[in-house]
Amino acid sequence: MTARRFVTLDVFTERPLAGNPLAVVLDAEGLDGAAMQAIAREFNLSETVFVLPPEQPRHRARLRIFTPARELPFAGHPTVGTAVLLGLHDRRAGVADAIAFGLEEKVGVVPCVVEPGEGRGRARFRLPRLPELWGEGEDPEPATAAAALGLAVQDIGYARHRPSRHSAGTPFTLVPVRSLDALGRARPNAEALERAFGAAAKVFLYTGDTEDPGHSFRARMFAPGAGIAEDPATGAAVAAFSGALMQFEPLGEGTHDLVIAQGYEMGRPSEIALQLVIEAGVLRAAEIGGSAVVMTEGEIRV
Rank of each mutant, 00 (worst) to 15 (best):
E230D: 15
F217G: 02
L193Y: 06
A229K: 11
A226H: 15
S216K: 01
L193T: 01
P224S: 13
D231W: 11
A219Y: 04
F204K: 02
V203E: 04
A201H: 08
A229Q: 14
G227N: 06
A233V: 02
L205N: 09
A196R: 11
G198A: 12
M221D: 02
A192F: 11
D209H: 05
P224Y: 13
R220K: 07
G227W: 06
A200Q: 14
D209I: 00
R185M: 13
G208D: 13
P224N: 13
A229H: 14
F217V: 00
L193R: 03
D209S: 03
A219Q: 11
A201K: 05
N189P: 00
F204I: 06
T210F: 08
G198M: 09
P188I: 00
I228T: 12
L205M: 07
P188Q: 07
R187K: 11
A200G: 10
R220D: 07
G208N: 07
T207R: 12
E191F: 02
V203L: 07
P188N: 10
F222H: 08
A233Y: 08
P188V: 00
A226Y: 15
L193I: 00
R220S: 09
A199N: 12
S216F: 10
A190P: 09
T207L: 06
P213M: 09
A226G: 14
A186D: 08
V203Q: 05
P232L: 11
R218C: 03
G198Y: 06
H215W: 08
E211N: 13
A196V: 08
G225E: 15
A226L: 14
G227P: 05
R220I: 02
R185C: 10
L193F: 04
G208K: 00
F217C: 02
I228A: 08
P232C: 10
M221I: 01
F197M: 09
G214N: 13
L205V: 03
I228V: 13
G227A: 05
A199T: 08
G227R: 01
F197E: 11
H215N: 10
I228N: 07
A233C: 07
R185L: 11
A199R: 08
P232R: 12
K202H: 15
L205T: 03
D212M: 02
R195Q: 14
R218M: 01
I228E: 08
A186R: 01
P213I: 03
P213F: 02
R220H: 12
F222C: 03
A229C: 11
G214A: 08
A229V: 12
A223P: 05
R220Y: 12
G225Y: 15
A190N: 10
A199K: 08
A201C: 07
I228Y: 06
A219T: 11
Y206F: 13
F197K: 09
E230S: 10
P232T: 12
R187F: 02
H215A: 10
G225I: 13
S216M: 04
R195W: 06
M221L: 14
A200R: 07
P224V: 09
R220Q: 12
T207I: 09
P188K: 02
A199E: 15
A201Q: 04
